[in-house]
Design a protein around this nucleic acid. Structure first.
Lengths: 247, 247
DNA sequence: GGCAAATACTAATCTGCGTCATAACGTTTT
DNA sequence: AAAACGTTATGACGCAGATTAGTATTTGCC
């Protein structure tokens, strides 16, 4: 159901049938959100967390002049702000990139899981640490790669993340974001993002069109962005992206 | 004892006496490590985590040419690789910057805490999310600030983190790292790090000498680095000399 | 279908930082 | 005391990417 994509294909932390049922039962509401809507602002007290079912969301920080730095892009299956459960208030804003469908999970329900299901709690903990691992890859991207490398790395990462949840066929996926979003992700201007995307196109590595990304040379794009997917903790077994004990 | 500085001064998650005793009891060994020693390599299976008692450590990623990007600097009181407990293997290397004293905590002991002490577990979870919040601030630093701003931000952050554990007097602290380390933290060359430090000195904001950082204008340095300490989740304790610098 | 507003794209100029080269320190080793 | 090394320091030069200033092309809305 709603939690089908959560932790799907992640090394050693697939949810068992009972765990999945409990998590499913923790959902209080499912709703849709418009594109480009802010759903959480930094500093506000939170009593719910959000599981992304469909669409794309982001988390970002503003600088003094109001320019944004995206610190995360969330894809379906991500527990977008689960870290609000231990933190109680966030250090950043959360918004949709595209129209999205989300499941709301009250922290009260998570209290129950925390108190009675240590194994599931550790898997929830794991999922927040996966986000932290992605943060680190983004730090590498911003600190060590040039503009072309940053975009190549981001597109390679997104492809790798969409694969286990069935939203990439291995080289093509829908991603309704703009060139300006790419700029805010990669720490460059939108003008330069445009130049970089043209270069990737001319080099035959990747074609980016607002709503569709077509990677022509998966290996080459990864090389250009020094992308190594180990930090995503995705199961090495390609035949079995699914688990669920055949329930 | 060894855990005295862990989560010290953090909003709403101070350890109770019993929790502290349990955590203290989870330590299997305390040992010292030389400066510039790697203690964990990416990918290796781990069965212990490391609480930093004294000295400075770092976590980093290598690029293809062997250049490092630091993704975290750890100060005394930090549970350096607690995230290895749910993750089981890390996506990055961990090393000392200076000589250090650490406490080793076996994951088996953490299993016991996880199974029987949900409150303490949530505080441990919190501490790993604090690291993630710092990652996000670093993403902002690399994505949105120029070289001077990056160094100003880093030094402001380090000052703010050392304050609650008693290792900064509010504007001066010992930090045995080199200009090259600053470069690897801020994603710039060591040559440029040198230029930036000179500029901060000439502008009367901060004097960096290998083993001592002296912030002459705490407010001004924070402004230059767009530093806002909210993401550190530090208790707003009025008795602490937080930002009482005039400028 | 037609208009307005985003978004995509391009070119010209400017600049922050990288690169390369060299030298002066200080610390440890022998 | 000199050699060997790591760290700090500084200057000359070039380039990747920012900035500015547009024009084209979508997309969405009435």
């Amino acid at each position: 159901m709603f939690t089908d994509r959560f932790l799907k294909g992640r090394r050693g932390v697939q949810l068992g049938a009972e765990e999945r049922a409990v998590l499913e039962g923790a959902i209080s509401e499912v709703r849709t959100i418009d594109a480009r809507a802010t759903i959480v602002s930094a500093g506000e007290p939170l009593s719910n967390s959000t599981l992304l079912i469909d669409g794309f969301m982001c988390r970002y920080l503003d600088d003094r002049e109001g320019m944004r730095q995206l610190v995360a892009v969330q894809v379906p299956g991500d527990f977008v702000d689960l870290h609000a459960y231990p933190l109680k208030t966030l250090d950043h804003d959360v918004a949709t990139l595209t129209a999205a469908t989300v499941a709301i999970v009250p922290h009260r329900a998570l209290d129950g899981i925390n108190a009675t299901m240590p194994e599931l709690t550790r898997k929830l903990w794991f999922s927040t640490l996966l986000d932290a691992a992605i943060h680190r890859a983004w730090l590498f991207r911003l600190g060590r790669l040039d503009a072309v490398g940053r975009v190549a790395h981001f597109l390679s990462e997104t492809n790798a993340r969409l694969l286990p949840v069935g939203l990439s066929d291995g080289s093509r996926f829908a991603l309704g974001i703009t060139q300006n979003d790419i700029a805010e992700i990669c720490g460059i201007t939108n003008v330069h993002a445009n130049r970089v995307l043209r270069q990737l196109r001319e080099e035959g590595l990747c074609v980016f069109r607002s709503s569709l990304v077509d990677i022509l040379d998966v290996r080459g794009l990864a090389r250009r962005g020094q992308f190594n997917p180990d930090y995503l903790y995705i199961d090495a077994d390609p035949t079995k992206p699914n688990e669920s004990q055949a329930s």
